[in-house]
C-alpha cells in the first residue's frame, strides 16, 4: 500500500545498545526510517521492541550508538532534548492522558506551553483534530469519563497537535477491549495514508499488512528481519520469524 514515495532518512539508529542489568535488551540496532514511511515493529514479548520505540524519544537512555532525528543526534538532557521531543509524537499503551485536564486541554497544553501558540489558535486546531479522530463532542470531559478507545484517539490527537515529524506508537491497542481496537487502528491507517512517518510497535498483524511499508521483526534484542509486509508474512526468511508467525496462525 505504498501510495507515497518515501523521502530522505528521518529517523536513524546506529549501533544502538542497551542493557537492563545483565539483560542485553538492544543489541547493535541499526534502523533507518525515511520520511513518509510506516514501519511496523513486531516480535515476541521481551524482544526489546517497546524499548526501541521509547529510546527514539529518549524515554529510555541508551548506552552505545547514536539515534538521530532529521539529522540531529538526540541530546542527552535539557532544552535541546525537549525541543527534539516536541517533533516526535508518542502514543502509549496506557494512553497517559493528563488526568486532571479536560480532553480539550490535553490537546492544547503542548502547543500553548511548548510552542507558544495562542490559546484561541490552539483550541481551534485541537477541535479540528478531535473531530478528525471522532471525539469532538467529548472536548469538555475529563479523560476518566471516556472509553479506552476514545482516550487513545485523544492521545493521538494530542501528539498530532504538536505537528510532529514522526509518530511513535508503543503498542497503542494492547490495553483496549477488542471492539475498541478497530476505532484506533482506523485513525492510524488514515494517518498512514496521509503520509505521516510512523513507527508502530504492535501485535496487530492486520494493521501491519494493511498500512506498513516495512515490517521489522525483533527477537532477543536484535532486528532479525526487515522486509515488506508481503515478503515477511508470506515468505519469512529466519526460523525465529517462521516460528513466531506459526504461533500466531494457530489461534
Amino acid at each position: 500500500m505504498t501510495t507515497h514515495v518515501p523521502g530522505d532518512t528521518l529517523v536513524s539508529l546506529n549501533a544502538v545498545n542497551k542493557h537492563y542489568g545483565q539483560l542485553h535488551v538492544l543489541k547493535d540496532i541499526n534502523l533507518q526510517v525515511r520520511k513518509g514511511e510506516v514501519v511496523v515493529v513486531i516480535g515476541p514479548s521481551g524482544s526489546g521492541k517497546s524499548t526501541l520505540c521509547r529510546a527514539i524519544n529518549r524515554l529510555e537512555t541508551i548506552e552505545g550508538g547514536t539515534i538521530s532525528i532529521d539529522g540531529k543526534v538526540l541530546p542527552e538532557e535539557g532544552k535541546e532534548l525537549a525541543q527534539l521531543r516536541a517533533d516526535v509524537g508518542m502514543v502509549f499503551q496506557s494512553f497517559n492522558l493528563f488526568a486532571h485536564k479536560t480532553i480539550l486541554e490535553n490537546v492544547t497544553l503542548g502547543p500553548i506551553k511548548v510552542k507558544g501558540v495562542s490559546k484561541a489558535a490552539a483550541e481551534k486546531d485541537a477541535m479540528a483534530l478531535l473531530e478528525r479522530v471522532g471525539v469532538g463532542h467529548q472536548a469538555p470531559k475529563l479523560p476518566a469519563q471516556l472509553s479506552g478507545g476514545q482516550q487513545q484517539r485523544v492521545a493521538i490527537a494530542r501528539a498530532l497537535a504538536m505537528k510532529p515529524k514522526v509518530m511513535l506508537f508503543d503498542e497503542p491497542t494492547s490495553a483496549l477491549d477488542p471492539e475498541m481496537i478497530n476505532e484506533v487502528l482506523d485513525v492510524m491507517v488514515q494517518l498512514a495514508k496521509e503520509g505521516m512517518t510512523m513507527i508502530v510497535v504492535t501485535h496487530e498483524m492486520g494493521f501491519a499488512r494493511k498500512a506498513a511499508d516495512r515490517v521489522v521483526f525483533m527477537a532477543d534484542g536484535q532486528i532479525v528481519e526487515d522486509a515488506t509486509p508481503e515478503e515477511f508474512f508470506t515468505n519469512p526468511k529466519s526460523d525465529r520469524a517462521k516460528d513466531f508467525l506459526s504461533k500466531l496462525l494457530t489461534h
Binding site: Q83, L84, N96, L97, K113
Partner: peptide, 24 residues
Amino acid sequence: GQAEAARSIGMKFGQVLSLIILPQ
C-alpha cells in the same frame, strides 16, 4: 506515564513538574 507523556510533547522538567505532576 503522566510525566512521560508530558516529556514526550516537549515539556521541560519545570513544566512537567508544575503543570502535570504537582497539580495531581
